[in-house]
């Protein structure tokens, strides 16, 4: 019943495995959301995780990043990941941009992005001066006029960009983006994907969870299909 993983089709020379997931299961109470998912993401990949709603795509990311406790093996750049430890995953290069953005609505846009740095520092000065923070802010010129504004007052598309910027402020080597276009108009969704393409081009490995595979597939070179909580390469 377990999904099989075949070698990544577009990688003739064996690149380093950025993320290896073997036999991952996630349960909420007695509800099994993910069951025996196995796949590998190679460094430099842009990997789409696709499949219908409610089939456990998001739960895979939640389990891999440590937001929920999991069973099974996850290794990030060769090191076995600690279970349920988001900070560990972030420090080893894996950051999540969650579904529905999960911003802090009463904090300013700038503070929302700045808190991405919390994964690696406690000093506000270091965070403000860091490359990752400046790059994250610079990537979104449309956010510049709103930096002092409460994030809850931004439009849906702007909030999504803040969430991505916050993820980038953590200086990730792998950015896992969950449903980046949820509830966004077509034009804004396109802008979000343009930004993701740029992030990928800058050398960050991408994992994108997407319900509608069309947009994701234009960007991604690999795809993991999830059905009934079971993942396999497609």
């Amino acid at each position: 019943m377990t999904g099989d993983e075949t070698a990544a089709p577009t990688a003739p020379a064996p690149a380093a495995a950025a993320l290896t997931v073997r036999n991952l299961s996630v349960t909420y109470g007695n509800v099994v959301a993910v069951h025996g998912a196995t796949f590998t993401v190679t460094e430099g990949d842009a990997c789409a995780i696709t499949g219908p709603n409610g089939n456990g795509k998001s739960s895979i990311l939640m389990g891999v990043t440590g937001m929920v406790r999991r069973h099974g093996e996850v290794t990030i750049f060769g090191t076995p990941a600690r279970n349920g430890d988001v900070r560990w995953a972030a420090r080893h290069g894996l950051t999540l941009v969650p579904e529905r953005r999960q911003l802090y609505p009463d904090l300013t846009t700038a503070d929302n992005i700045l808190l991405g740095c919390y994964t690696w520092t406690r000093s506000i000065g270091k965070a403000r001066r860091s490359d990752s923070y400046t790059r994250a802010v610079d990537l979104f010129p449309e956010l510049k006029p709103h930096l002092k504004q409460a994030a809850g007052t931004l439009s849906g598309g702007q909030q999504q960009m803040v969430a991505i910027a916050r993820g980038l402020a953590a200086a990730p080597k792998i950015l896992a983006v969950d449903e980046p276009c949820l509830g966004l108009a077509e034009a804004i969704a396109k802008r979000v994907y343009d930004v993701l393409a740029q992030i990928h081009a800058d050398g960050t490995t991408l994992i994108v969870v997407e319900e509608a595979p069309r947009r994701a597939l234009a960007l991604c070179n690999r795809r993991v299909e999830v059905r009934n909580g079971m993942a396999g390469a497609a």
Partner: peptide, 18 residues
Amino acid sequence: AGREAPDELAGLPLSSVG
């Protein structure tokens, strides 16, 4: 009984839940 269950369940194939 239900509360204890998750840890036993997880990792088992879906078809043998509960």
